[in-house]
Design a binder for these strands. Structure first.
Lengths: 150, 150
DNA sequence: GAGCCAACGTTGGTTACGCCAACGTATCAG
DNA sequence: CTGATACGTTGGCGTAACCAACGTTGGCTC
């Protein structure tokens, strides 16, 4: 986002504009926060998915975290190079790799979560506690609605 | 976003995750909607800024719409090539170009707004009217807070 | 008036994210 | 056995956001 010396035109009060703009801001903060621990969004999503639901194939990981198969490959290469995950062929299905979170990966995930907590605080600073809850609820409704039908 | 056959891990109930994910969805719908009228986000923002606040230099346009100077150049090239804006040297300041919305540009802006209205309806389908208003309010608070200080 | 700094338009990168097409290998259903 | 499907992988595309650098032009100060 640019330094805005002029106020943005007020006709932009449409939710999709607000959403994408606010999101751009959020994404910037998230990128910044994760960058501080040498990570990016995909890394967090993958490690979190592994932590939450345990080891998985790459395709499963992609489905869990909403990342395209091809992007999973690249991100896992980076994570594996730093020993944050282990990639082993699945003996039961030789098409698959089994991806496992390493202790180092667990530690890194923890660091990411701390960074994201801080981002959270910064992002939601102007909202009261009930407002934060309401925002979370509304966004959850939207997300669920738009990804259930798949 | 990927077709999600598995439910996303539930630990992802953090606002920044929700925001960026919902936003990714919104952005996808916006891109789709604008694509149907052969446009993209930057085009809409620029034409809307021109319509709202009148002719301006490229730098001013960038500040109004939150787009980097260099990206303004490229987007205006595309808009000018389709006669949606006019780009003329400013006689009063020969560093500047004065960008003006053409009648065709006004018509195109109208088409974009229709497309975005439709996107809005799709995106906010699961929310009641007061919920939509509340979401808009909360996002506005966030946006204002995070871009005022600049 | 001369010199210097700031603003402007422009070019040419870079990064993240989301997505799609294609290929070879492996598995499974008929 | 054969055809369809799933998997990992490579390579590419488009959008958005941003940064550095350059030459030109304006304005300010000495």
């Amino acid at each position: 986002m640019n330094p805005g010396t002029q106020p943005p035109a007020r006709l932009h009060a449409t939710p999709s504009w607000l959403l994408t703009q606010t999101a751009a801001h959020a994404a910037r903060l998230v990128t910044e926060g994760l960058g501080a621990v040498a990570a990016r969004g995909y890394h967090y999503r993958l490690l979190a998915a592994l932590h939450d639901d345990g080891p998985a194939s790459q395709a499963d990981l992609g489905r869990r975290s909403g990342i395209d198969r091809s992007d999973v490959v690249a991100a896992l290469n980076e994570l594996a190079a730093r020993d944050l995950v282990r990639r082993a062929p699945d003996p039961d299905d030789r098409r698959r790799n089994v991806i496992t979170l390493t202790p180092a990966g667990r530690r890194q995930l923890h660091r990411m979560e701390q960074a994201l907590d801080h981002v959270q605080a910064t992002l939601l600073a102007p909202l009261s506690s009930p407002e934060r809850a309401e925002l979370t609820r509304l966004l959850t409704v939207l997300l669920d609605h738009h990804q259930q039908p798949r």
